[in-house]
Design a protein around this nucleic acid. Structure first.
Length: 202
DNA sequence: AAGTAACA
DNA sequence: AACG
């Protein structure tokens, strides 16, 4: 059983969970997903697009437009989302559950200057299931807040191969990504950070 | 506000 | 300049 490197406010952080070869294998599978379901920058409900580009794999994909945040069973092009790669499922089984698989693997791509504002993951039906996050590529400054907006926060750098499990007290905690150290990792030839988030949706 | 900007 |  894998134990966390450190725990902050219930966020279990596993530094270097994926070795270099595992990161390359995962990236190869993700390229296939991106080919089948091209990444896009969703509109926020207020009309401004997110700086992060995203796509999904699995039964559902996360989606946002003027109508709000939600999970949808199809890519905006009308196609079903491609299956979640087996190498990704393996990490879920190790860190979260062997009984129940995730319904959604959201794939976020952070280019130079991309950020993710502080938010809660609350578009799922059952908050009893943790959210699993996997980082690939450039370092990202991850910020952990509180169950409500405001208050003191704690930040840490996530690097390629790190995993974070957000369950229990951390499940509804506000979090976001402030900055990318563009070009800090050799994994992606053109730079950038990829973050996978795996969730049980319904 | 899963956004952006200003300010201390 | 980085952080909150």
């Amino acid at each position: 059983m894998t134990t966390p490197t450190l725990t902050i406010r219930g966020f279990k952080i596993f530094k270097g969970l994926l070795n270099a070869a595992a990161q390359v294998d995962m990236l190869t599978e993700l390229r296939e997903v991106a080919r089948a379901a091209p990444p896009f920058s969703p509109q926020t409900p207020y009309g401004k697009p997110m700086s992060v580009r995203m796509t999904s794999a699995g039964k559902y994909g996360w989606y946002s437009d003027r109508s709000g945040y939600r999970y949808v069973p199809h890519h905006p092009d009308g196609q079903a989302w491609p299956p979640i790669p087996e190498v990704v499922m393996r990490i879920w089984r190790d860190l979260v559950s062997k009984e129940r698989g995730p319904d959604c693997c959201l794939i976020n791509f952070y280019g130079e200057g991309a950020r993710m504002g502080m938010h809660q993951d609350r578009d799922e039906a059952d908050f009893g299931w943790p959210v699993l996050s996997l980082s690939l590529g450039d370092d990202g400054l991850f910020r952990i807040g509180n169950p409500t907006r405001g208050g003191k926060t704690e930040s840490l750098w996530l690097s390629s191969g790190d995993a974070v499990v957000m369950g229990g007290e951390a499940r509804l905690t506000y979090h976001g990504v402030d900055r990318i150290r563009f070009g800090s990792s050799p994994l992606l030839p053109k730079g950038g950070r990829i973050n996978l988030t795996l969730r049980v949706v319904d």
